[in-house]
Design a protein around this nucleic acid. Structure first.
Lengths: 399, 399
DNA sequence: AGAGTATGTTCAAGCTGTTTACTTAGTCGT
DNA sequence: ACGACTAAGTAAACAGCTTGAACATACTCT
């Protein structure tokens, strides 16, 4: 249930063993079908060490053996795979207008999902509602016979490292909420990892951690919804998230993009959110808080006023992306959040601006891919589940 | 001589031993006067392990024993200190108008320094000149009888992780320079660690790594000179630097701060450097490239045009700092570079803007300290030396 | 069928951290 | 001044993990 992260400086033999087991598990997770010999080569371990480590992971049900591989002149190796049938992870996102829940297999496959509209209330009643939905999810047949590894909750506001407090969620009207402490009494039987994190950071983590094939060395997730935030995940083995001392890292909605510009709800002037965000688009077009932004705008996309507003917002987003490129320089940028549903009127100016300017400093040597998530509904919830898995693999759970 | 950094996933017993030795050494370095018992408690190791580790570090000359500490009811512990007399580190910075060199003790104390004006030429002749100055430094009495641990070079441009190439240095007119490969033939006798890094990143590393007492969990160094760049160092044990895939992380001079603003030399419009930077101040006030900016402006600080220009630049810097606060949220910000010598006309607006706005999102719970370096002349060179020490402590050198 | 080659396993050996008991060096109380 | 007490540091036996070398296994090529 603790979320603090112990910075490991020194270690004993047990630590070394766990380190090696984790490394093996991560490698097979990332590259399904790896053989013991492949692992020994890549991890710089001996065949014997890998053999015993794999055996123990097989016994614990983390791995399973697959087919024999094609021989390359000698005895063929046996393929190893993550055992995707034994465990599951719970991930939830408390959004501004929605609760989203997933149960994931260790591979990241979504086993069951729930998507409930909700009107923000107190943290306490939200926790009660979420607990009820989680229990509903856990009773579903695809999940019920698996072993749970823990639960992760993604929230729309800054959360500092090592302290499970949501400092402020302006769009929920919450402040200093220890959400896990509120949720735990409703789910006392739920053991394993308990964690909470910022929504964009969970999303970034999940997009990187559940990736297979060629894995970028870092990934930035930009979440464009009512507000706008970002998360940076780095490192392929077990990605690290940049949270900042106060959890404010990624609060890009409040970076200044137009000095002396409009007032933001934070009290400052010219914040990026005054140019791109659900609330600023609402304000510009006079759309009521109670109406769904996307549904309201969909039939009005041809109106010149709407087109102009979305184009301007899109261009501001492009600048914001370029600023992140020149501040954090991630290997890949992923764009998600409800505003991506506004389509090309909004997205095209952002993508165009970024493409036109990303090579200003170094020429066209290496392109940073910018990808728009097709459906970002469960990205943050799935990301929180990914964080649970990472914690389980690298924590004391693995014996 | 290799600069690539192997991401350690798995390890053997030797790795574990080195890890523990490094941890002990780091702890004593950070808190001089620690006893074996203190180390055992903090590092979660047994007395016996610490004892043998310390013994080996004493034998190798990394540590030395000090006085007995005050007893707290039992046998007093013996204080341990970093042996500051045995080794030294070389650090150099190739600036736009200056070469700066230092030889440091492991504590970070500058033993000898050199500061030479220079006019940018080819990489080759710069390497030759630098090598000559380095040899001069190594012959000085305070250094000559110590053992060298390696050399680090800080350069004004992006350098990607794991690849010792300076991609572009616009203010030097260099491109794709493997500077270490040019320097090495002139100093074949120099063994140990060889590395190069971006100037602001070296500075950030050094400011964090050589700190004693209360150590911030992360530190952002902003270098304001001809151009403007930043570096973020994180983690107290052995700080990590964020470089980005292409080494563009921290290129904050080219973040957009004024959409549709003036053209930048990068070809884009509204970059922060068009508002704050040595070159933009020169351009606004019509100061020739050949004249020293600081010396030219010092007698003119009362002129309304100068005051206005510097105030505007300072305010833009304040916004840039706030943007970094809301993007990276470091635990401490350090401001350096030649422009800091312009004094309060320039600095005061920056500091005021930052102080006035840093609490917009969370209230005044926790203040992020913003410090201006008194004399930033050797900060980057000393930081490069710090990187050498860290590489030596955590690399294979420690047996 | 037999040689060749690479995978995976077994087991004694070596190394590292731990445990336990002991020595050492102070303080406190009488 | 002496002894009881406390905590730091050390020595030796012990436990656990990785290693190295020999061996068993499984496929291909001739």
């Amino acid at each position: 249930m603790a979320t603090s992260y112990q910075h490991q400086k020194a270690g004993d033999l047990n630590f070394l063993k766990r380190l090696n087991r984790s490394a093996i598990l991560e490698m097979v997770r990332r590259v399904p079908g790896l053989t013991r010999a492949d692992i020994a080569t890549q991890a710089q371990l001996t065949k014997a060490t890998v053999g015993s480590g794999v055996q123990s992971l097989l016994n614990q049900g983390w791995l399973k053996e697959g087919d024999l591989q094609k021989s390359s002149g000698g005895r063929p190796g046996r393929a190893l795979h993550l055992n995707d049938d034994r465990h599951y992870l719970l991930g939830a996102e408390v959004g501004v207008h929605r609760l989203r829940l997933v149960a994931c297999a260790p591979s990241g496959k979504v086993l069951e999902a729930l998507h409930e509209p909700f009107v923000p209330t107190t943290p306490e009643s939200t926790a009660a509602l979420l607990a009820e939905l989680l229990q509903q999810l856990m009773r579903s047949p695809a999940v019920a016979q698996r072993e749970n590894l823990g639960i992760g909750v993604a929230l729309p506001g800054p959360i500092a490292t090592g302290d499970a407090v949501l400092r402020r969620a302006p769009n929920l009207g919450w402040q200093d909420v220890r959400f896990l402490d509120l949720l735990h009494p409703h789910l006392p039987e739920l053991k394993g990892v308990w964690l909470m994190d910022n929504e964009a950071k969970s999303a970034a983590f999940g997009e990187l951690y559940f990736r297979t094939g060629k894995i970028p060395e870092s990934l930035l997730y930009v979440s464009a919804g009512t507000g706008i935030g970002s998360g940076l995940a780095e490192g392929s083995h077990s990605p690290l998230l940049t949270r900042g001392v106060q959890g404010l890292a990624g609060e890009i909605g409040h970076t200044i993009l137009q000095p002396g510009g409009h007032y933001c709800h934070c009290g400052n002037r010219g914040c990026a959110e005054t140019l791109v965000s659900g609330w600023s688009i609402r304000a510009t077009l006079g759309i009521d808080e109670k109406d769904d932004l996307i549904q309201t705008l969909e039939p009005r996309l041809q109106e010149p006023e709407v087109t102009l507003t979305l184009r301007r917002a899109g261009e501001a987003l492009g600048m914001l992306l370029l600023n992140l490129h020149h501040t954090q320089n991630p290997a890949e940028i992923v764009l998600g959040g409800s505003l991506t549903q506004l389509g090309n009127t909004f997205l095209e100016p952002a993508l165009t601006y970024f493409e036109a300017n990303q090579h200003r400093l170094l020429g066209t040597t290496q392109r940073v891919p910018l990808r728009v998530v097709e459906d970002s509904t469960f990205v943050a919830a799935r990301g929180a589940a990914a964080q649970v898995l990472a914690r389980a693999i690298h924590g004391p759970e693995l014996s």
